[in-house]
Design a protein around this nucleic acid. Structure first.
Length: 278
DNA sequence: ACCCAGGTGGCTT
DNA sequence: AAGCCACATGGG
């Protein structure tokens, strides 16, 4: 294990980063630390004041700098959101340390296919079980065997019947199918509109899951995923009816512009936290 | 026994 | 284009 230190990191809080429903591969250890697996690396991330300390199996500083999106200025983002909409202030305060991680596209594709009509604790369990069964063994890590997220090849070869036994339910057939399509097409390229069409052509991917994939897997900060929580937020805060999805999208685009996805994360995190009382 | 969770596919108006 | 409904599973 090697240590990487990023000093004076602003706008970061590990609970906010890892419990905002963007990744399902990090586990809380104590007040200041999480352990997680990213690609074929494991990591213990700790925050002491404004110093982000990583103990990692692979000390590639640039990789982790990119993963945590440390090149971006989130104070500026928040300032812009607030000047456009004073109503978002509470959510910005409660989720001040959210950052949009730069995650692996394929992992995001599969985990958000799993996420549909499901809840975060259960998604986390399923993603872990999937990694244990189909992912590469990385070694012992905090007294536990660590496994990478499965490769497209291994999931393309997975048997849907096995996935059913693992309780993936009706999503079982979607997973090998998606992996197979990804092997043929790779990461979608072109304009965001072209990418959108490709991503929604996956079975089990509709507008909401696609939106999460472009936001978290392609770092398209304009994407504004509307799930059951966001529907509630949009009706409680802004007076929309719960079936007015198109109107909500247009509103978000107008009000939050090129960082609507980030605004969504602050709102989602704040509302979900209050409802779950985590 | 119902309702809900980071919804979607398929079918019917 | 919009409105139903089935779909697996587990927790409240």
């Amino acid at each position: 294990m090697e240590e990487i230190i990023f000093k004076n990191v602003s706008d970061i809080n590990l609970d906010h980063v890892f419990q905002s429903g963007q990744t399902f591969r990090w586990e809380k250890l104590n007040d200041s630390s999480y352990k997680g697996i990213v690609k074929d690396k494991f990591c213990i991330a700790s925050l002491y004041g404004t110093d982000l300390i990583l103990n990692v199996s692979d000390g590639d500083r640039q990789f982790w700098h990119n993963y945590f999106d440390l090149g971006a200025n989130y104070s500026d983002f928040k300032y812009r959101l607030l000047t456009n909409d004073s109503k978002i202030e509470t959510a910005l305060k409660n989720g001040y340390g959210i950052r949009i991680l730069r995650q692996d596209f394929f992992e995001v594709l599969i985990t958000f296919i799993i996420s549909q009509n499901n809840n975060i604790p259960r998604i986390t369990k399923l993603v872990k079980a999937l990694s244990v069964k189909y992912g590469e063994y990385l070694g012992e890590f905090f007294g536990e065997s660590a496994y990478a997220f499965p490769t497209p090849e291994s999931l393309a070869a997975a048997d849907a019947e096995d996935l059913k036994e693992m309780k993936f339910g009706y999503r079982s057939t979607y997973i090998p199918k998606a992996a197979e399509q990804f092997l043929k097409q790779g990461i979608p390229e072109g304009t965001i509109l072209e990418q959108t069409l490709i991503i929604e052509s996956y079975t089990g991917v509709g507008p909401k899951v696609r939106s999460c994939i472009t936001l978290f897997g392609l770092h398209d900060m304009e994407s504004f995923p509307i799930d059951t929580w966001v529907k509630k937020i949009m009706s409680d805060m802004y007076g929309f009816k719960s079936n007015e999805i198109k109107k909500m999208q247009d509103f978000a685009e107008k009000r939050f512009g090129d960082i609507a996805g980030l605004a969504q994360q602050y709102l989602f995190f704040d509302y979900m936290r209050k409802s779950y009382k985590i």
